[in-house]
Design a protein around this nucleic acid. Structure first.
Length: 135
DNA sequence: CCCTGATTCGC
DNA sequence: GCGAATCAGG
């Protein structure tokens, strides 16, 4: 398969749209793996941060008109599932208190972004290059 | 075990 | 240029 302009364009859109590499790969199909997507994306000079899943707390900019989703769709504690980010938004007791609700990383209480938030930004990997052992 | 993107490196 | 394998991390 070749990266035609169309595909590249699609990749760009989806990537910037916030879809995960695996999602994009699945979207394109045709044997494209997430690695291929990431590889290409990287090559294209698209983002380069450690697993970003945008902390989109900020509502999207409404270009003129926006087909708003459920404005009252707040993720409450009761809406949380095992795989949802339990990052609190607002203060407990507050009327606006809700949760991030994004897909959380398996085993983690938060989504990747918030996990990283909870801990610390990833340290620059300076020395990482153990020679791969391959015949 | 699920997943994320990053990087390397033979092709 | 491509992407599988690998890495690093949660």
């Amino acid at each position: 398969m070749a990266w035609t302009d169309e595909r590249i364009d699609l990749l760009r859109r989806l990537w910037e749209k916030g879809l995960s590499a695996s999602q994009i790969a699945g979207e394109i199909g045709d044997g494209v793996t997430r690695n291929a997507v990431i590889g290409k994306a990287h090559r294209l000079g698209l983002k380069s941060r450690p697993s970003p899943v945008k902390t989109d707390s900020k509502n999207k900019k409404a270009s003129g008109k926006a087909a708003k989703k459920d404005k009252n769709a707040k993720v409450t504690l009761l809406d949380l599932t095992e795989r949802m980010c339990k990052w609190p938004i607002g203060h407990p007791g507050d009327d606006d208190f809700h949760f991030c609700g994004k897909n959380s990383v398996a085993g983690m209480p938060y989504c990747e972004a918030h996990c990283r938030e909870a801990y610390q930004a990833q340290q620059p990997r300076k020395d990482r290059r153990p020679p791969r052992v391959r015949p």
